[in-house]
């Protein structure tokens, strides 16, 4: 500041070693480094899990076809077989069933908050949803174990550990996800849509069904897909109520298992590097791939939304 007069404009204003700011450079390096760490984390998760997940096929020569299509999971037999289909089926079953329950409830809740009672409905339901998100998954599992499982045991057949119990626990867990995103989607619709339809004499329900829901459809589907992604990846809560058997279930009241529950249970009990252990990593790889697929679906849906 003092030597302003002494220096010429060129010396003051043209970039040089004298007037360069080291702080700026350091700051830029610091935050770029953090961005690089995020890239590194993502890339290394992908690479490490892919390499490890392929070992059962490449090193132990487990047939990928058998792994994906056989229902016979018996790694401890003399002639061990590694059919993971029951678990893949279990994962898909609880995911779709829980979406089937949670989607109408979540979207209905969103419509309630945006269309039926926008003022007080939001005030009551919003914090409820936020609190539901906050409840840890082991607590959901524990409640399922102490209420749901005995209830199903008494009113149905079997032990109560079942696909049904897993589905109900998961649908409550993904309900807040679906409701939150669906509420944002409905709230983002231009109010001219609403007013236009109501002005033409349509009732509120006709407006919702014929105008609002179709307009918000891609975003609502996004909400459901994100809910399903959460259900698919959830481990402990499901594991605590589903029963964890290795056969294909015949009914909703039968026990079953999912990819995540088998990993949870057996990862600690198997020797690291054994064939059975390696097949668990292959299941982890499936989880990773499916979570990529969910991202791609969400991307596709959001690209449709802009049109």
């Amino acid at each position: 500041m003092e030597n302003k007069a002494a220096l010429s404009a060129g010396e003051r204003l043209i970039k040089s070693k004298r007037n360069r700011s080291l702080g700026e450079l350091r700051g830029k390096i610091l935050v770029t480094l953090c961005a690089l760490i995020m890239i590194t984390a993502t890339v290394s998760v992908t690479i490490f899990l892919t390499v490890k997940g392929l070992q059962s096929f490449l090193v132990n020569h487990v047939s990928p076809i058998e792994f994906l299509t056989s229902t016979n999971w018996n790694p401890l037999a003399d002639d061990p077989s590694y059919g993971a289909l029951p678990f893949i089926f279990g994962s898909l079953a609880v995911t779709f069933l829980s979406a089937l329950i949670a989607a109408p409830l979540g979207i209905g809740g969103a419509i309630f908050m945006t269309e039926i009672a926008p003022s007080w409905g939001r005030k009551v339901l919003q914090p409820v949803i936020e609190l539901l998100v906050g409840i840890p998954s082991v607590v959901y599992g524990f409640i399922g174990l102490t209420i749901l499982v005995p209830f199903i045991r008494e009113h149905g057949t079997g032990t109560g550990f079942s696909i049904l119990a897993g589905t109900i626990v998961l649908s409550i867990m993904i309900l807040p996800t679906i409701t939150t995103i669906a509420t944002d989607a409905m709230g983002a619709l231009p109010s001219s849509l609403r007013e236009g339809s109501l002005a033409l004499g349509a009732t509120r329900w006709q407006t919702i069904r014929k105008v609002l829901l179709p307009a918000a459809l891609p975003s609502l589907l996004t909400a459901v897909v994100l809910g399903m992604a959460r259900a698919f990846g959830e481990a402990l809560a499901v594991q605590m109520v589903i029963g964890n058997v290795r056969s294909l279930p015949a009914s909703l009241l039968d026990p079953s298992a999912t990819l995540t529950t088998i990993i949870t249970l057996n990862m600690g009990h198997t020797t690291y590097g054994s064939v059975e252990n390696n097949t668990l990593w292959s299941m982890g790889l499936i989880l990773l791939i499916i979570s990529f697929v969910f991202i791609l679906i969400v991307r596709y849906l959001s690209s449709r939304r802009k049109i």
Binding site: L13, I14, R20
Partner: peptide
């Protein structure tokens, strides 16, 4: 041009410029 310097030029230190 400002005191003989083109201040739109790429090699201008915009921080020093904005102070002046």
């Amino acid at each position: 041009m400002y005191e003989g310097v083109d201040i739109l030029s790429k090699n201008i230190n915009t921080i020093a410029l904005r102070k002046e």
